[in-house]
């Protein structure tokens, strides 16, 4: 069982399946464009300024319909995130009224938000959310960037493992936010739905949420739909994977360590076996 025979087997399998796979992909919708995300690749980390801008878009636009129940105000302070100061985060939390209770007389009451509260949902339950959104449920955004993807097909799904491409979800969200267009000739869009190039089936209940100049950026970043979409997608990625920075940092240390240990073990093993023909 030599390497050559293994490679031969793999190549044979690849040839066998490359043809039908590429033939089947001809009919697919446009694939989302791959953007160059700061957090892609083995050394990729979140861009703090971008996360802060993305948070602003999320706060002022998305969160008026979407919940984010696993996202807590305290997350705004933690390392590897938008890194607001504790005072800033407390102030942001205090802008929201949270239902708490029951108090000593058994009543629920409203109080300003604290760091230990999760992001308040815009609707009390799914039914209310549907009723206010024409029957469609705006999905919770906490892990949305990991819950969305698109079909890559062969051989892309193999090469992605080697180049460590994991950003399909954010690519899709960015593409969706910028993918609103007039429907092509002959396509009838149902009432209450909107044409979107990247949404599966092309008809989405959410109207185009972003427009140029809608959210004010104070750092001179262009206030365009594309920029908003990029920033908020990056923010959603952080919300879905808040420990990415630590993961990649520790990962690099572990890999270097294992390479050193493997090398040492290899030479030790070689030494021990040196007198035995095998």
């Amino acid at each position: 069982m030599t390497i050559r025979s293994i490679l031969f087997g793999a190549a044979a399998a690849a040839l066998l399946f490359a043809a039908p796979a590429s033939a089947a992909e001809g009919g697919h919708d446009d694939r989302p464009a791959r953007l160059s995300w700061s957090f892609a690749g083995p050394f990729g980390m979140y861009d703090t300024a971008q996360l802060q801008r993305g948070f602003k878009v999320f706060k002022e636009v998305c969160s008026s319909c979407h919940s984010a129940n696993f996202f807590y105000f305290r997350n705004l302070v933690q390392p590897g995130g938008p890194r607001f100061s504790e005072a800033q985060a407390k102030q942001i939390a205090a802008e929201y009224q949270i239902t708490d209770g029951p108090n000593d007389s058994g009543d629920m009451f409203q109080r300003p938000g604290r760091l230990s509260d999760h992001w308040p949902a815009p609707f009390p339950n799914d039914q209310a959310a549907r009723a206010s959104n024409g029957g469609a449920l705006p999905p919770d955004m906490s892990v949305l960037a990991k819950a969305r993807s698109y079909h890559v097909g062969f051989p892309g799904f193999v090469t992605d493992a080697f180049i460590q491409y994991q950003e399909h979800g954010v690519d899709y969200i960015h593409a969706l936010l910028t993918g609103y267009a007039e429907p092509p000739e002959g396509v009838h869009v149902q009432s209450g739905l909107h044409y979107n190039k990247y949404f599966p089936g092309n008809q989405i209940a959410m109207p185009a949420p972003l427009s140029d100049g809608q959210v004010e950026y104070t750092d001179g970043t262009p206030q365009t739909v594309d920029q908003y979409a990029t920033d908020v997608s990056a923010f959603l990625m952080w919300m879905a994977e808040p420990h990415l920075d630590a993961r990649k940092r520790i990962g690099f240390q572990v890999v270097i360590f294992l390479i050193v240990l493997s090398g040492l073990l290899y030479f030790t093993k070689k030494k021990v076996w040196s007198k035995v023909p095998h």
Binding site: Q164, Q166, R247, V255, L258, S262, Y266, W273
Partner: peptide
């Protein structure tokens, strides 16, 4: 003999494992 060879191979396998854990955990 076999112990060292096994430990070495396990270590190399761990490297492969770590590629997934740290860089493409949801792949």
């Amino acid at each position: 003999y076999a112990t060292l060879k096994d430990v070495f191979a396990t270590c190399v396998f761990l490297l492969f494992f770590c590629w997934f854990i740290f860089y493409i955990p949801n792949y």
